[in-house]
Structures are given as structure tokens and as C-alpha cells.
Simulated scan of single mutants.
Amino acid sequence: MDVPRTTLSEFDIDTERYHDRRDRTDALKSYLAGGGVPIAGERYLDLLEAGATATKTFRELEGLLTHYATTDVVPLFELADSRPFEEYA
């Protein structure tokens, strides 16, 4: 199953800001990987708590996280719907 990537360049956020906090392997990727979610999520929650939901940064982070969550979870439901799986010998 080919899962779509959440490409960082599609969102207008400062990805360099998160570079030092991302795992070395993830930091080299052009897409959001699992290790980057808590970093982006923390910034998103900080803006939410500050009431900065009308800012461009908040909207872009929300779009980034929504895309990642959707493309990460939907295939899991599709996989579950394809049960029963073949038994392995």
C-alpha cells in the first residue's frame, strides 16, 4: 500500500526551526516523519493556547498536521477492512 507523504514544502512553515530538534534521519527528509509530529504539534498547541488561531503559522501547522494524520490513519482503516489476511505458513 502506497501511503502519501506530507511534503514539508507544500506548507508555509519554518522547517529550519525544527531541524535541530528532529531526529537526524528525519531531519534529512523532505516530508514530515513521525519524529517531527511532536515538534510541529507542540508549536501548534502553543499557538492555540495563546489564542493565535488566526495566524498564518497556525493555519499552516494545522494543515500540515491534518494532512499527516489523515494520510497516516486512513490506510490503517483500509488495511483493517481487507481482513481476513492470508495465513502465513
Rank of each mutant, 00 (worst) to 15 (best):
M1T: 14
D2L: 15
V3G: 07
V3M: 02
P4R: 04
R5F: 06
R5M: 08
T6E: 06
L8F: 04
S9C: 12
S9D: 13
S9G: 05
S9K: 15
S9R: 15
E10R: 07
E10C: 07
E10G: 01
F11L: 01
I13C: 05
D14Y: 12
T15D: 09
E16N: 15
E16I: 09
R17Y: 10
R17M: 10
R17S: 04
Y18I: 04
D20C: 05
R21W: 10
R21V: 11
R22G: 01
R22D: 05
D23I: 00
R24S: 07
R24W: 03
T25D: 09
T25K: 09
D26M: 05
D26V: 03
A27Q: 05
L28G: 09
L28H: 08
K29R: 13
S30I: 10
S30L: 13
S30P: 15
L32Q: 03
A33I: 03
A33K: 06
A33W: 01
G34C: 08
G35K: 01
G35C: 09
G35N: 05
G36M: 00
G36W: 00
V37S: 01
V37F: 00
V37D: 03
V37Y: 02
P38D: 07
I39C: 00
A40M: 02
A40E: 00
G41Y: 00
G41W: 00
E42P: 04
E42A: 10
Y44V: 00
Y44A: 01
L45G: 09
L45I: 06
L45M: 11
D46Y: 03
D46W: 00
D46V: 00
L47T: 06
L48R: 11
E49A: 15
E49H: 14
E49R: 15
E49K: 12
E49P: 10
A50T: 12
A50H: 09
A50N: 09
G51V: 06
A52P: 08
T53L: 05
A54I: 09
A54W: 12
A54K: 14
A54F: 10
T55K: 07
T55G: 05
K56Y: 06
K56P: 07
K56R: 13
T57E: 09
T57H: 03
T57W: 04
T57S: 08
F58I: 04
F58P: 06
R59L: 11
R59M: 10
L61E: 03
L61T: 04
L61N: 08
E62D: 15
E62N: 15
E62K: 14
G63L: 02
G63T: 03
G63S: 02
L65D: 01
L65W: 02
T66D: 07
T66W: 02
H67W: 07
H67K: 12
H67P: 06
T70I: 09
T71G: 04
T71R: 09
T71N: 13
D72V: 06
V73F: 13
V73C: 10
V74T: 10
V74G: 04
P75R: 03
L76Y: 10
F77Y: 11
F77D: 07
L79H: 11
L79T: 12
L79D: 14
L79S: 12
D81S: 12
S82A: 15
P84F: 14
F85H: 12
F85R: 08
E86A: 14
E86L: 12
E87Y: 15
E87V: 12
E87W: 14
E87M: 14
A89P: 11
A89R: 13
